[in-house]
Each structure stands twice: as C-alpha cells, then as structure tokens.
Amino acid sequence: MATAVKRPSGKWQATVRKDGRSQSKSFLKRSDATKWAREAELRTDQGQLVSARNAEIPEMTLSEVMNRYRDDVTSAKRCADNESYAIDGFLRESSNLAGRKVGKLKASDFVAYRDRHMKSMKAATVVRELGWLQHALDVACADWGQHLPQGNPVKPVRRPKIDNRRERRLQDGEWHALLGAIHQARSPLLKPLLVLALATGMRRGELLSMQWKHVDLERCTVFLPQTKNGRARTVPLSPRAVQVLSELPRNDVRCLPLSGNSVRLAFERLRRRAGIVDLTFHDIRHEAVSRFVESGLSLAQVQMISGHRDLRMLMRYTHLQTEDIVAKLAAVDIA
C-alpha cells in the first residue's frame, strides 16, 4: 500500500508497505511524493521492495540525529531558541549516549539518562527533553530512513510527575532592588521588559514575540496571535504599559527584539546583583496576576488579561484574598 502524508516539517513523506516491510522517502512537493509512491508500489509488486534497514542509507548516531533535528525541525518551532540551547547542552553533556548508533539504543539508556538528570534538573525540564528526544527519533525513522528494531526507545520511558506550582510573590523591597540593579544591565530593553511583565501579566515568550503592527496605543491594547495555549488574545494595557511602549524605539518588527535565552541569562545576573533569592522571571507574571485579583477584577476579567485557558486554573489566586474575605464576613456577621 502506498501513502503520501504531510509531515510537521512541511515535507511530504511517501511510504510503501508490504508484508511488514516498508520504504519511505520525503519530498518538498506532494506531486513528487505521489509519483514516487506509484513507482515504488509498482516495484513492490515486482518483488523489488527493500526495507529502510537494508537500503543503502548509513545508520546515524544519536548526535547526528539531534544536530539535524535542531537545524531542520527545532528551527521552525516558536520555542526554537530554548530548545536549540537545550539540545546543544545534551550533546555536550551526554557524549557517550549521543555517540551511539540509533539502532543500538535501548529504553534502559534513557531510563538511566532520566534518573541521572532528575538529580540536577526539574521534572518539567526532564519531561521536555525526553519529549524532543522521542520526536527526533520518530522523525529520523519517518523522514531520514533510520531503523529502530525495537521501536522508539524513548517512548516506553516513564515520565516523572510534574509539579510546577509556585506561590512566590515579590517581597518588600525586591521590585525596587531589581530596578535599582538594572542600570548595570547590558541591554537597555531589560527594564521595559520587566515593567511590561508586571503591568500586563504576559508570559516571557509573549512579550518577546510582541510586534508593533499588533500594538494599538490609542485603544490601549496589544493583540497576541500566538500564545502558549494556542489561542490568540487581545491584552488590555494599563497607562503604565502604554507609557513604556510609547517610549520604546521602533527600529525592529518586534517591540522587544531579544532572545529568550539572553533574557534568561540577563535576569539571573540581575537577580544576583539585587541580592534576591529564588525568583524567576515567570514569578513576575504570578505577581501581576495576583495583583489583578487583589485589585477587585473578576476571575473572568483576569482570565481575559492573563490568557489562562480554564477559570479553574485561576482559583489558586483566590487564596490571596483570604484576609479581605474574613474582614467582609466579620462586617456582615449577624449570628
């Protein structure tokens, strides 16, 4: 049976299968893939089909797979900077595993990799890495003619449980300490980035992808066509956010032309200079959303600003109003 399927990379993968064997090849055009599939199917009927394992395609090492995956697949993702950086780190730190031929890899190799990295990484980071390792091997089989005798060795590896819940709020003096230490920052865009993060509650990726064509300072809004949860949204801007945006130079398509990794490193340096412990950039979003709730906005209104997919995800912010609720209950206590 011959098929032609469009891959996430945009290429068309033609595959011919018969009696448990298969042969695949990728093309830029669907017409080319269909033509090859018809010709390969004819060869199949004549008994000329060979599997990818027996075809004259050299077996790749995991390092070769990951380098090609980074250049061909990761580069097209919205999270390209972060994932490319992570893949480079994997290649540096896991040279023994990366040097193995993909056909020799076993699930136990990645179980050992998972357990080793759980000692120094967060569970979410390990899960992400296992995710792109599995996808890279899937792509290598589907598009690059590689063969995994026992199937994808990453697929059966149990993922650690993720608990990313944080309740970190800015403590007295921490915000001013950050702004006070910012004069030593290399980029003049770091301060407006931080101020906008606190004023809008937007995620780092949303702030960095924000484009001038989507900013309307008269209506005090910014449109985000791509967000983490896949839904576009329009974010209302406070007077402070409008002021910051109006003072930014417009010499780039993006309002804040910075890379995610450069911001991550710059924020770490800033946090250390300010003498602040255990604060992440994402904690500023948590602080912003908490302040929205404390200001009296309804959860539905906060959801429109923050972009949380489900109102239940905002329920953890309601505990921040406990003291206010106690005071209100005391005022109406008639028992």
Rank of each mutant, 00 (worst) to 15 (best):
M1A: 14
A2W: 11
V5L: 11
K6Y: 11
S9M: 12
K11L: 05
W12D: 10
W12I: 03
A14K: 00
R17K: 13
D19M: 02
G20T: 11
R21D: 06
S26V: 14
D32W: 04
W36K: 00
E39L: 10
A40D: 14
E41K: 01
D45H: 06
L49M: 09
V50D: 10
S51L: 07
N54M: 03
A55K: 01
I57P: 09
E59F: 08
S63N: 13
S63H: 09
S63Q: 15
V65L: 04
Y69G: 06
K77Q: 11
R78E: 12
D81H: 08
I87M: 03
F90W: 06
F90C: 02
F90N: 05
S94H: 09
G99W: 06
V102I: 15
V102N: 12
K104R: 11
K106N: 14
A107T: 05
A107C: 04
D109C: 00
F110S: 15
V111R: 11
Y113F: 15
Y113Q: 07
R116H: 08
A123S: 13
E129A: 00
L130Y: 11
L130V: 15
W132R: 02
L133A: 14
Q134T: 05
L137H: 00
A140I: 07
C141N: 03
A142E: 14
G145L: 03
G151P: 13
P153T: 06
V154T: 08
V154M: 12
P156V: 01
D163S: 07
D163T: 03
G173K: 00
A177N: 07
L179H: 02
S187K: 02
L194H: 15
A197V: 12
G201S: 10
G201M: 04
E206Q: 05
R219V: 12
L224M: 02
N229H: 05
G230H: 07
R233T: 03
A241R: 00
P249T: 07
R250K: 01
S259H: 07
N261F: 08
N261K: 01
L265A: 01
A266G: 10
F267W: 08
E268A: 11
R269V: 15
I276H: 14
V277Q: 08
V277P: 06
T280I: 02
T280C: 07
F281S: 13
F281C: 09
F281R: 04
S290H: 11
E294D: 10
S295I: 01
A300P: 04
V302H: 10
M304T: 05
M304H: 08
H308N: 08
M315P: 04
H319M: 00
Q321S: 13
Q321I: 07
E323Y: 04
I325T: 13
I325Q: 12
A327W: 09
A327P: 07
K328V: 06
A331Y: 02
D333G: 08
